Simulated scan of single mutants.
Amino acid sequence: MTPSIDLMDDTFVVADRAELAAYFRDPDTCRAWWPRLRLTVDEDRGLKGVRWVVAGELAGTAEIWLERWRDGAVVHWFLRADPSGAARSPGRLRLRYTREYKARVHELKDRLEHGRAAGVPRLPPAR
């Protein structure tokens, strides 16, 4: 049966996959990005990302898949869940989780890309 909330997003970030993987593996990131959810790591996929079991306001699964592409990575996000208990309607939850995720992933993108102009390759790390 298909969950009532089935979201996905793909965002290209000019950053090293190892940096992104470490960021999303951090429990503080999960609490900050999804404060109404409890995410339990189901599978740590290393540079490929993390899969979680979701509890709290929603019950289901979530995943960040990091796909290497050119000088960065595509951050694929999946959230497949149903509202728990007396939570809001699925439509409102879908909209809220979509908006909140996009705002956070673009904040991360801006921070990691350090104002790099579009089309300009990532600079090597400073030595």
Rank of each mutant, 00 (worst) to 15 (best):
K48Y: 10
A103Y: 04
R45H: 02
A62C: 08
P27H: 09
T29R: 05
T2Q: 12
V53P: 00
P124A: 10
P125F: 00
V50H: 11
F12Y: 15
V14R: 12
R111E: 13
E113I: 07
E67W: 04
A126L: 14
A103L: 13
V50I: 15
L123I: 02
A117H: 03
V13T: 04
V13L: 14
M1V: 11
I64H: 15
L112T: 03
Y97I: 06
V53K: 07
E57Y: 02
H76R: 15
A62H: 12
E19M: 07
R111C: 09
R104P: 11
A32W: 08
E43T: 10
R25F: 13
A81F: 10
A117N: 03
P27Y: 04
R122K: 04
L20I: 04
H106F: 14
L95E: 14
R88E: 14
S89K: 09
A126P: 02
S4L: 10
T40C: 07
D6T: 02
R116K: 03
T29V: 06
A117F: 03
R116H: 01
A55G: 13
R45E: 06
S84K: 06
W33P: 04
A103T: 09
L66Q: 02
R36C: 08
L95W: 12
W69Q: 15
E19P: 00
D16P: 01
L95M: 13
R88V: 04
R68V: 11
V105N: 06
D9Q: 12
W77V: 13
L58A: 01
R70H: 09
P121M: 07
Y97T: 05
A126Y: 03
G119V: 08
D26G: 11
L7Q: 00
R127P: 03
E63P: 00
F12H: 09
H114T: 13
E107P: 02
G115K: 09
A15V: 02
R36M: 13
A62Y: 07
K48S: 14
L123P: 00
Y23K: 13
L20N: 02
V53H: 10
R25I: 09
K102C: 13
G119A: 12
R68N: 07
S4N: 04
A22D: 12
A18R: 02
L37W: 03
R36N: 12
A32D: 12
E63A: 15
T40A: 15
L93H: 04
V41Q: 05
P124C: 07
P35E: 01
V75C: 13
G115R: 07
V54T: 04
D42V: 08
R92T: 04
S4Y: 02
D16A: 07
D82F: 03
A86G: 11
I5G: 02
R122N: 06
